[in-house]
Every structure is written in C-alpha cells, then in structure tokens.
C-alpha cells in the first residue's frame, strides 16, 4: 500500500476548477517530483493533501482518508508541508520556528531529541538560532522552513517550489540535503518544482501536470528521455 494515494482528485477555487481528477501515489521512502507549468495545479494538489483546500475524490495518507480533515488534523497524521512562500513565522526567531515544528509532538521532549539532528544538517542554524527568521536570506529561510517541518518527524514531506527565487548553489545545497534525508532516514518526499532538472535529479519518479491533470508519469530517467518533457520543461 502506498504512503500517499490520490485518486481522481478534483479541487476548485470558487467557480474555477483547478484540479480535474489527479491520480498519483508516493511510496514509503520514495522521492517523487510533481512538475508542470505555472497554474497547472501543482500547489493545489499539495494543498488538497494537507487539507488547506477542499477536494472531491479520494486522498489517503498512511491508509487513512483525508476527507474533510482540517489542516491541523492532517498534520497530526504525520504530514510535513512546506508551503508555497515557505510560511515562516517571520517575527519569531529561528529557534521559535523550530519549536513550532515540535508543537504537536510535545515541544520540549521532541526538540531535545530532534534539534541535534537538525543542526547536523544545518550547522549555521545553531549559531543563529536567536535571529529573527524574517531577517534571514531567502535560502536560509527556506532551510528553516525545511528544518521546521523535519522537527515533527513527518512520514511524508511535501515541498512546494523550494527553489523559487534562490541562487543555483543554494538550490543544489537544498536538494543535496533532501536526498541525504531520503537515503539516511528513508524520508518520503513529494516535491513540486518548476525547475525540472534539479527535481528529476533528486527524484526516483515524477508526474507532469497540465491544466489540473496528470499527463505524463514515469521514472526520472524515462521523463528525461521524454520528447515533450525535454522540450517543455528541461529546455533542450
């Protein structure tokens, strides 16, 4: 049984339909990329999973139907969602952001256990834990958002365009850490990206969304060889 299963998922914003029946799966310990142009429904797919957007169709996470669960209850099932725009608490410090990541699992006990692990992946964060998150650089903010999601030890991590607005070296660093988390801890990841090159390098499988539907799916190698994927998303 897959860790995350979407079957014929539809979602709308008011009268506008954003998803027209998305079907995809993410297995335990797997990194899966969700590609597509602007407005294809990538973000909406993640939001449907985390309960921030209502959906029709079936979404099951760890065998449990998401249904009408509110985002806080979906999060408690073990879902880590780093949303579009990172969703940091900009007026709180780095450490307070991490504390919020531990909120639902018993803050103090969880942090005692998880903080050393987090600081192994992000050594600079320990030195700057008392800095206000809003004053960090874009790349650092993305790292804090990632770290905050990791503190809760999610079964599935969903990343929404982590590369957006970041320098190429920072993007490389970010995806290196994601790959490491996957190999070391078996963390399952569903990553939404416009930057298909970097996403396919990190992912084992990928789906391509167009106008709210999955149009292509396959292993990363297959997609890299795919004529229209190459033309539209990889640029060669």
């Amino acid at each position: 049984m897959a860790l995350l299963e979407l079957e014929g998922v539809e979602a709308r914003y008011g009268p506008i339909k954003a998803l027209h029946g998305v079907t995809l799966t993410v297995d335990d310990g797997e990194v899966v990329a969700l590609l597509g142009a602007n407005g294809a429904g990538k973000t909406t797919t993640l939001r449907a999973v985390s309960g921030t957007v209502r959906h029709e169709g079936r979404i099951a996470f760890g065998g449990q139907s998401i249904g009408r669960r509110t985002p806080d209850r979906v999060a408690r099932l073990g879902l880590g969602h780093v949303p579009e725009g990172r969703g940091l608490f900009s007026e709180l410090t780095v450490w307070e952001n991490l504390r919020m990541g531990a909120y639902m699992r018993g803050e103090r006990r969880t942090l005692r256990k998880e903080a050393p692990r987090i600081f192994r992946y992000f050594p600079w964060m320990e030195r700057r834990r008392d800095q206000q998150a809003g004053t960090l650089s874009g790349g650092e903010q993305q790292m804090v958002a990632l770290a905050r999601a990791l503190v809760s030890r999610p079964r599935l991590l969903m990343l929404d365009e982590p590369s957006l607005g970041l320098a190429p070296t920072v993007v490389q660093e970010l995806f290196r850490i994601v790959s490491e988390l996957n190999t070391n801890d078996g963390l399952a990841v569903l990553v939404v990206e416009q930057n298909a090159n970097v996403a396919l390098a990190a992912a084992a499988r990928a789906y391509v969304l167009e106008v709210g539907e999955v149009v292509i799916e396959g292993t990363s190698d297959e997609l890299r060889r795919h004529e229209s994927v190459r033309k539209s998303y990889l640029g060669y």
């Binding site: 408690r76 969703g87 940091l88 919020m100 639902m104």
Partner: peptide, 18 residues
Amino acid sequence: LAMRAVAVNPDASRLMGV
C-alpha cells in the same frame, strides 16, 4: 508560543498542527 505564531501566520500555524 503557538498563540504568537497564530498572530503572525495562522495558515502556517495550522500546518504545524495548531
């Protein structure tokens, strides 16, 4: 802390299980 987080960013707070 959670109350302060909610004041800053209620949507992100929900994703933290608040």
